[in-house]
């Protein structure tokens, strides 16, 4: 299947706008998506992620702009002709059909021969490891199993692009991490372009080739997880992906990640400033301190909990330092 779906799947979005009355749900988006890429749309609630995905899928008409699949415009193509797989939030399985019929649906509406459908369904069942559940109805499956049926159903017709709208939203945390790994593995095996919507930053960081940070219907920043984390361009990008301190220096704002700060009791030569500990919070792997500094106001500092020794009490005077590369200039 990687053979047929790898043929295509490159998307180009230009100047895409969606207006509901006076609300601009998507306010002008330009984006290139490589074939076979795992791209995540990350943004807070109401930032236009679902709207963008629905326009790509063909369930919403664009107010302006164009969507190209392998160079050809698809905005006039109805949803059922676009051949994009989609995993809906809540899965939207057909409740009256068995797992087998759900997965075979796309091929059966394409009037493929019965033998071919049966073979393909079996292949998909193996892929998502649902052996033995072929005859169950969706209501007889657990959340994680339903999610895999939804995936298999969407991939059964080897779509060039798979759209996923918060597919793990309904799962508990432990299962979510498990399924994340399975999804990533699946992506590598099938070679389909994945466009993945989430508002969970960990999910975005751990799974994606590239992440698009959205806010208010616009793209805030696009890049690999490493790029976004180490070189956020705006204040919003710096806070939405991870935590950050903001330093005001030379008339600019700079971002500084809490774990890139060195903190120790007493002073040494290359310290930037000194401060007093206001509070400390224990998170298992890290200790978080809030430090009142003389030059930069209150800074958050993360320290490896096991390396840092005993927790420092509030009121302790500490000195603080960081490498030059640790601070990143922001645009706004």
């Amino acid at each position: 299947m990687s053979a047929d779906s790898a043929q295509s799947g490159g998307l180009a979005i230009t100047g895409l706008v969606k207006r509901y009355g006076t609300v601009e749900a998507v306010a002008g988006i330009d984006l290139e998506i490589q074939r076979g890429e795992f791209l995540t749309l990350l943004g807070p609630s109401g930032s236009g992620k679902t709207t963008l995905l629905m326009m790509i899928a063909g369930f919403q008409d664009a107010t302006a702009g164009d969507i190209l699949l392998d160079g050809r415009s698809i905005v006039a193509t109805p949803a059922e002709k676009r051949n994009f797989g989609m995993v809906f939030q809540g899965y939207a399985l057909f409740p009256h059909m068995s797992v087998r019929d759900n997965i075979g649906y796309a091929l059966s509406v394409r009037k493929r021969p019965r033998r071919e459908i049966a073979g393909r369904v079996e292949e998909m069942i193996d892929l998502v490891q649902l052996q033995g559940m072929e005859d169950r109805l969706p209501a007889q499956l657990s959340g994680g199993q339903q999610q895999r049926v939804a995936l298999a159903r969407a991939l059964a017709f080897a779509p060039p692009v798979l759209l996923l709208d918060e597919p793990l939203g309904a799962l508990d945390r432990k299962l979510r991490i498990e399924v994340q790994a399975q999804l990533k593995d699946l992506h590598e095996r099938v070679g389909t372009t994945f466009i993945y919507v989430t508002h969970d930053q960990e999910e975005a960081l751990s799974m994606s080739d590239r992440v698009v940070i959205m806010q208010s219907g616009r793209i805030e920043q696009v890049g690999t997880p490493q790029e976004l984390y180490s070189r956020p361009r705006t204040r919003f990008a710096a806070t939405f992906l991870g935590k950050s301190n903001f330093l005001h220096r030379d008339g600019r704002v700079w971002a500084l990640r809490p774990e890139k700060i060195d903190l120790h009791v007493g002073s040494s030569g290359d310290d930037r400033t000194t401060g007093k500990i206001l509070s400390q919070t224990y998170f298992g792997s890290v200790l978080n301190y809030r430090v009142e500094t003389t030059e930069f106001g209150v800074l958050e500092v993360d320290v490896d909990a096991w390396r840092g020794g005993a927790a420092l009490r509030p009121g302790t005077v500490v000195s603080i330092g960081w490498h030059d590369e640790a601070v990143v200039p922001l645009e706004d």
Binding site: G58, Q89, A92, F94, V109
Partner: peptide, 22 residues
Amino acid sequence: DNRVIAASRNLGAGGAQTFWRI
């Protein structure tokens, strides 16, 4: 659920097929 109908169209079924089968 409207999404079930949307899913059917997304999987390639036209209006008539979606009506009869879903």
